[in-house]
Design a protein around this nucleic acid. Sequence first.
DNA 1: AGTTATAAGCTAATACTATTAGTTTGTCAA
DNA 2: TTGACAAACTAATAGTATTAGCTTATAACT
Lengths: 188, 188
Amino acid sequence: MARKRTLDSAAVVRAAAEIADADGLDLLTLARVAERLDVRVPSLYNHVDGLTGLRRDLALAGVRASTDAIRRATVGVSGDAALLALCRAYRSFARAHPGQYAASVRAPGPGDAALEEASEELIGVVLAILAPYQLDATAATHAIRGLRSIIHGFVSLEMAGGFGLPLAIDESFEQLVATFIAGLGRAR
Amino acid sequence: MARKRTLDSAAVVRAAAEIADADGLDLLTLARVAERLDVRVPSLYNHVDGLTGLRRDLALAGVRASTDAIRRATVGVSGDAALLALCRAYRSFARAHPGQYAASVRAPGPGDAALEEASEELIGVVLAILAPYQLDATAATHAIRGLRSIIHGFVSLEMAGGFGLPLAIDESFEQLVATFIAGLGRAR
DNA sequence: AGTTATAAGCTAATACTATTAGTTTGTCAA
DNA sequence: TTGACAAACTAATAGTATTAGCTTATAACT
C-alpha cells in the first residue's frame, strides 16, 4: 500500500536542509530525512547518492542560496557600502541557515563540476564588488581569501559559541569588517 | 588471556589524536582507537566517557598544545613581531595537528570547567601579547575576537581546500595578518 | 484504451557504529 | 596470603548506512 511516487531530489534536499538548519549538520541522518518525508530509508537512494551525496547536494544548495542572498543585499550599492552589505548578508545567511552553511564549508573540494561552478559564481559576485578597488589579479586573490577568512572565521566561531558572552558581538563584527575594508583602501 | 592492564586515559587520547590528525576528526571512531591499542571497544569506557567524552578530551589536549606552541613561539618577542609569531604558530599547529585543531574548534562551550580554564589560559596568553597596544577592555575583546576569526577562518578554509590552487597561500596569510595588525595600531 | 517498460518505493539482509550490563581476572594493598 | 577493587572482557541492544532484489504504480507507446 501507499507506494505512490511522492519524492524527488529537491524534496529530499529541502527536508535535509530543514533538519540540518534546525538541529545541526551532525544530526542530519538518512533515517530522520526518511521519517520526515514519511518514506523508508532506502527509497532516498533513488534521488540522492547516499548520505555523502545528500551532504554534497545540501552544500550546493547552500552555496547557491548564499550567492543569491549576497546579490540581493548588494544590488544598487557599490564601494565600501557594498562590501559591508556583503559581509552582513553572508553572516545573516549563515545564522538563518546554519546547516546549509556548515555543509557548504566542509564540502569536498575538487572533482565536482556543479559545486565548483557554483563556487566560481559566488567568487564572481565578490570580485564584482571588489572591482572599484582596482586591485590587480594577485591582490584580488589575496583580498578574496582574506574576506572569506574573516567572515567564515567570525561566523563559525560565533555559531560554535566560541565568543562566550554574546556581549556586543555585532559590534565586534562591524569593527573587524571595517578594519579589513580600511586595509583594502590602503592597498589601492 | 591477555587481560593485563595496559590502558590509561592518556594513552587513549594519544591514540585518538594520532588517528584524528592522520585521517580527520570525522574518521575518529572508538573501534579504530580500540584496534590501534589492541583492545576491545568497551574497555575504552573505563578511561574515557564514550565517543563524546573522547572528543572533548581531544579538544582539551588541542587547546593546551596550541597554547604551548604559541608560548614557545612568542617568548622573548613583543609588539607586532610577537603578534605575527602568534598567528604563524597557531597556523602551524593547526596544520601539524588538524584533528586536535578541529576537535578544539567544535568543542562544546559551557559547563566544562577544565576546557573553559584551558581556553581562558590561551586567551590570557593572547591578551599578554596584546598588552603593548594598550587597548581598553572592550577594545581588547573586539581585538581578540577579530584575531581568532581571521586565524581560524583562514586556517580552516585552507585545511578544507577552500582556496583552490595553493598559489601563494603563505603570502595571503601574511597580508591578512599584516592588515589586521595595521588596523590594531590605528585603533591605539 | 490497452500493453509494456521503466523506475519508485518497498522488504530483507548485511555490516558498521556506540553503548550498557554483567562476568572474569589481574593487580595492588592490607 | 588474602581480599577488595577495578580493568578488560563477552554478550546483547539499538542505531546507523548501504546493497540486493521484489512489487507495482506510473508513464510512454502502440
